[in-house]
């Protein structure tokens, strides 16, 4: 690990922009922070251009606060709304072709294991439902089949939000959306169930209405991925803009989903359970 890259040369410390001074002084790099500590430290995500009340950006904020060692974390994403917030995070973030994130992450993780055999470099995929469940599904599943030691986090807003509100595989049946003018004809893709039968050793389904659970899930998923294999966290991050509800209703929408199709669920192997109990 290297906090050196967040250590300014003394001579230049003064001339850094304010946000960097804050990151250096109060960022989460040197002592561990969690979701609980939000509001008391300088977050690694700076301002972002997400819409007011955006569930995705809340999800990003929460997961960014939950990273067990942000100074050794690399995030791999894909085009979509999540890009906008993730690009502002104070860590390495890669974003290339739509849907290739789990393949990029696999290559990256393996190379970092070669180059830093004695350091845990956490490679975390953070992407939307379109990137993971539609166009990148095969690459997602194969990273799980192959037991890559990466964490995959889906920010599920149940729509292609960034391109203007099209039906995604994770949209709910019956939803009328762009490209589904008569309502979606098939159910939400059961990616969470897929994860169970495709080799993930730990998985959580959660919503942004339960921030502490999000924090715990992300942290566990990353720690488990280091030791055992692929892990998956699916976070419901409702989109007020495309689903046309008022921005202050995001958490209510998420909360209601918790009683309905987005109940909290966790799965883990016994091995993993023992490991987590020890932590």
């Amino acid at each position: 690990m290297s906090t050196k890259i967040i250590t300014p040369v003394d001579e230049f410390a003064d001339c850094l922009p304010q946000e960097y001074k804050e990151l250096v002084a109060r960022g989460p790099y040197r002592e561990p922070r969690s979701v609980e500590d939000l509001g008391t430290f300088k977050e690694i995500i700076e301002e972002h251009p997400h819409c007011a009340g955006c569930g995705v950006s809340l999800g990003i904020r929460l997961l960014a606060a939950a990273l067990p060692s942000p100074e050794d974390t690399l995030i791999v994403g894909t085009p979509g709304c999540s890009f906008f917030g993730l690009v502002q995070t104070a860590l390495n973030y890669s974003n290339t072709a739509f849907g290739n994130q789990n393949a990029v992450a696999a290559g990256l993780k393996r190379m970092l294991q070669i180059r830093f055999p004695h350091v845990h470099k956490d490679v975390v995929v953070v992407a939307g439902d379109g990137g993971i469940a539609d166009i990148g599904l095969d690459l997602t599943l194969h990273s799980w089949f192959r037991q890559e030691k990466i964490t995959t986090i889906m920010l599920d807003n149940e729509v292609y939000a960034n391109t203007g509100g099209q039906e995604s595989g994770m949209s709910r049946q019956g939803r009328v959306l762009n490209m589904a003018p008569q309502g979606k004809r098939f159910p939400k893709i059961p990616v969470f169930e897929m994860a169970k039968v495709s080799g993930c050793v730990y998985g959580v389904r959660v919503t942004v209405a339960s921030p502490r659970k999000v924090g715990r899930a992300v942290r566990n998923a990353i720690l488990v991925a280091r030791e055992f294999g692929p892990t998956y966290v699916q976070i419901f991050t409702p989109c007020p803009t495309n689903m046309k509800f008022s921005p202050n209703q995001t958490l209510k929408v998420a909360k209601e989903a918790e009683k309905d199709h987005y109940t909290y669920e966790e799965f883990l192997s016994t091995e993993v359970a023992t490991y987590l109990a020890q932590l």
């Binding site: 290297s2 050196k4 890259i5 967040i6 250590t7 300014p8 040369v9 001579e11 230049f12 850094l16």
Partner: peptide
């Protein structure tokens, strides 16, 4: 000055930064 001299990320950077200043 860019990141390679702003951040004390490896040996020798601090000295190079000093020379820049």
């Amino acid at each position: 000055p860019g990141p390679l001299v702003l951040w004390a990320w490896r040996e020798g950077v601090a000295e190079k930064a000093k020379a820049v200043l």
